[in-house]
Structure formats: structure tokens, C-alpha cells
């Protein structure tokens, strides 16, 4: 009986990792298509995002079946629940990457600010490194690394603020970059959101191994005015342990 559960769990973990790898590729493709003005790549990845969404549903269905039929408790329960929740964060990351690609299509042919694009590339590299790290921590049940990652997106926030300033200065210098700068704002915000979801993933790694539950960051829900205010002040860690 339990063999079946372990077997299913193994499959679930493999699928989750596969989805993680795909999502990581999406982030790369999203910004690369933007920076390289590659409209074709952007369109391709919109297709890939659909595959990721399908994978997410497969994982969720399997996890829900396990919950209902095997009724796991204790450690087994946490393993299944964390995969269920982590899949949602992973899916959001994919969607955000996809939104970056959408900007490619919009900005094509307009004047740009190379320095900003360099920062965007750097932020992309940072979030991808974070994603690999959290996925590795996930499969290795590495609670320690996950805990370190709870506050680990400082670099991304730093670059986010730096990029913002650069964009504003850039528009002042040359109003022709206005169209591109609107996209830049969107993209750096999307990258920041991606990093928030990665931190959520780290929370699920911790929940899986310890049962400690953290307040998740829900950046998607912020209204734009809240966003403005927050963006002016350095972002503090929002992680508080739930009791």
C-alpha cells in the first residue's frame, strides 16, 4: 500500500522538477527575446507557457488524488501539500515570464536604453540562479538553504530600484525612449514578482521538512498605488512565521 504512495510521490517530484526546468527556461527566453528584440522567440514561448500550465494541472490533479485516496498525514501530508502549493508559485513564475515576452512584441522598433537592458539581463540571471537553488533545495530537502533564501532576494530588489532610477533619468535625457521605458517598468516589476514567488517556494521547502508555515508574499494582489509607495522605500523582508 505504501509502496504505491512512495511511487506516486516520486513521479510527482519528477514532474515538479521538469516543470521547474521549463519555467526557468521561460524566464530566460522571456528576457532574452526582449533584449534581443526576438519576436519569434517571444511567440514560441507563449506556446511553451501553455505546456507549463498543462503540467501544473497534471501535478495538481495527481496531488489531489493522492490526498483523497491515500489520505496522507504528518510528513506525507506535508510533502503532498507543499508540492501542491509550490506548483502554484511555479506556475505564476511562468506567467510572469510570459508577460515579459509580451512586452517584446509591444516595444519592437522603438528606441531603447542599453544600460537598463543590461540591468534587466542581470536581474534575470539572479532570479534564474535563485530558482535553480530553490528547486535543488526542494529535491534535496535542504531546509537550511531554503531558510537562507527567505531574505535572499535583496539583490533583485536593489537592482530593481537602480533600474527604476535609470529609466526615469533615461526618459528625461531622451523622450524618445518613452515607449520602451514603459515596458522596462513592467519587466523589472515582473522580475521582482518572480523573485517573490521564488521566496514562496523556499517557504514550501521549509514547510515540507519542518511544518513551519510562513506568510507568503502576494505581490500580484497589490494595487498600483500601494506599489508606488512600496517602491520608494527599500523593501524589507516580509517573512513572518505564522502560528
Amino acid at each position: 500500500m505504501h509502496e504505491i504512495f512512495l511511487d506516486e510521490l516520486k513521479k510527482l517530484n519528477t514532474q515538479f522538477m521538469e516543470m521547474g526546468v521549463q519555467v526557468n527556461e521561460l524566464i530566460d527566453k522571456g528576457t532574452r527575446s526582449f533584449v534581443d528584440h526576438n519576436k519569434k522567440m517571444a511567440q514560441e514561448m507563449i506556446e511553451q507557457d501553455k505546456i507549463v500550465a498543462k503540467e501544473a494541472i497534471t501535478i495538481e490533479k495527481k496531488a489531489l488524488d493522492l490526498m483523497a485516496l491515500q489520505q496522507p498525514v504528518a510528513t506525507d501530508f506535508r510533502v503532498v501539500i507543499s508540492i501542491l502549493k509550490a506548483t502554484t508559485d511555479l506556475e505564476r513564475i511562468g506567467e510572469n515570464a510570459n508577460s515579459i515576452a509580451v512586452e517584446t512584441v509591444r516595444v519592437k522598433g522603438n528606441p531603447r536604453i542599453p544600460d537598463v537592458e543590461e540591468i534587466i539581463s542581470r536581474m534575470t540571471h539572479q532570479v534564474r540562479t535563485m530558482l535553480i537553488k530553490v528547486l535543488t533545495a526542494y529535491v534535496q530537502d535542504d531546509e537550511k538553504t531554503a531558510r537562507e533564501m527567505l531574505d535572499g532576494h535583496a539583490d533583485v530588489h536593489y537592482d530593481y530600484r537602480k533600474a527604476r532610477k535609470m529609466i526615469i533619468d533615461g526618459v528625461k535625457k531622451d523622450p524618445n525612449v518613452a515607449v520602451a521605458s514603459a515596458s522596462y517598468f513592467v519587466i523589472i516589476r515582473l522580475l521582482e514578482r518572480i523573485s517573490d514567488h521564488i521566496v514562496n517556494l523556499a517557504s514550501w521547502v521549509i514547510y515540507k521538512s519542518s511544518g513551519d508555515l510562513f506568510e507568503l508574499i502576494n505581490s500580484e494582489k497589490e494595487t498600483s498605488s500601494e506599489k508606488e509607495i512600496k517602491e520608494e522605500v527599500p523593501k524589507k523582508s516580509k517573512k513572518t512565521k505564522k502560528k
Partner: peptide
């Protein structure tokens, strides 16, 4: 709640899951 969500011992989790 603790016993069924995060017991301290692996053997407890195993028993609760029918092992």
C-alpha cells in the same frame, strides 16, 4: 494537530500513514 501535521519522530509519521 502537531502529531498529525508535524510529529517529531519519523516512526510516528510512518505509523500514522499506515506503515
Amino acid at each position: 494537530e502537531q502529531m498529525f501535521l508535524a510529529p517529531k519522530k519519523e516512526i510516528t509519521s510512518n505509523y500514522l500513514n499506515g506503515r
